[in-house]
Design a protein around this nucleic acid. Sequence first.
DNA 1: GCTTGCCTACCATTAGGTAGGTAGATTCCG
DNA 2: CGGAATCTACCTACCTAATGGTAGGCAAGC
Lengths: 188, 188
Amino acid sequence: MRDTRAELLMQAETLVRGRGYAGFSYADLAEAVGIRKASIHHHFPTKADLGAALVAAYAARYAAALKAIRRDVADGPGRVEAYGRLYLGGVEQGLGCLCAALAIEGEALPERLRRDIAAFFEGHLAWLEAVLRDGQVDGTVRAGADPAALARYVIATLEGALLMERLFASPAAFRGTLAVLVDGLRRR
Amino acid sequence: MRDTRAELLMQAETLVRGRGYAGFSYADLAEAVGIRKASIHHHFPTKADLGAALVAAYAARYAAALKAIRRDVADGPGRVEAYGRLYLGGVEQGLGCLCAALAIEGEALPERLRRDIAAFFEGHLAWLEAVLRDGQVDGTVRAGADPAALARYVIATLEGALLMERLFASPAAFRGTLAVLVDGLRRR
DNA sequence: GCTTGCCTACCATTAGGTAGGTAGATTCCG
DNA sequence: CGGAATCTACCTACCTAATGGTAGGCAAGC
């Protein structure tokens, strides 16, 4: 039952991450999925609805991954490194971050989407802050730095690296930046 | 003589940095400048021409700023900090990086624009690499790290911070990330 | 027998771009 | 010098294709 809808979400995500929200149309999506343009409106009445569903699905996938990392990895830097590796897939596939693609279009975006994106980043910020704080407590993360500020710095570095290294199609360079980032978090 | 052209470039830059390349139209630009839509084609025959001119002007402004920084600031971390402050203006005005906005649309972009953007980043990369190498030589930048890798890491962090802190309209947070970044470059 | 999921056939609007014209400045040249 | 030719910068009016979205129909299945 949900097959077409899921396919729509998948293809739409690829389109947005590859060319931006304003850069793809229902016609593009219809062709990618092999359905008529009007049928998309049955699943997602407006483009803004589709965008919101996209962000929701993307955020849910990340949320699951973040949970798994906290379960499977013990130390702070290791967790941040695992977090950074989530972005690596984008570089390898030539796809940017969905929320970065949306954030770039800022003003032109439906207000609702803008809030969803902000919430996405806020969730990651909170997760990272907790991870870094825990790391400071157990001594795996350098002390003295504000975890909240550190969290912002971590996301910024990874989002920026994804943006740039996708352009250069260089997963190796992304790994290099991730290494510098994680290394800087370790206890001195 | 060049007044209208300059005005077109200025307004177009604001539009692209605010809503992306696909997110603005010649009609938007015409209204912003107070000219008829068709007249824009007199100055920039196609949208791709306008985009290329935009990147060229943006890159030239940055090139001048980079030169000034090397002239006016002596130490490595100080230079990187001055470089980072160039991005701060964007956060304060709610505008992203022009080349980041274009990079996001990747595949959908005219091939020529994609190369101009890559060249923009390569120029900054080369500048930063030289600055960091000089800093290592004069002892103001921590030794042992590959300057090329460090340069990529610096741009990534700043581009990412601009992307995110524009969304949150938080120059203070940008400053925080810049501080973490520069601090990490100092001699240990 | 009504809901689901898709279809064809539209719609108004907007997209980037073109055709052709005009007022005013600049240049060419006898 | 004066006038003709040209160029610049803009205009109105238009084009075709694509945009997001709607109306209404039809077949399948719980």
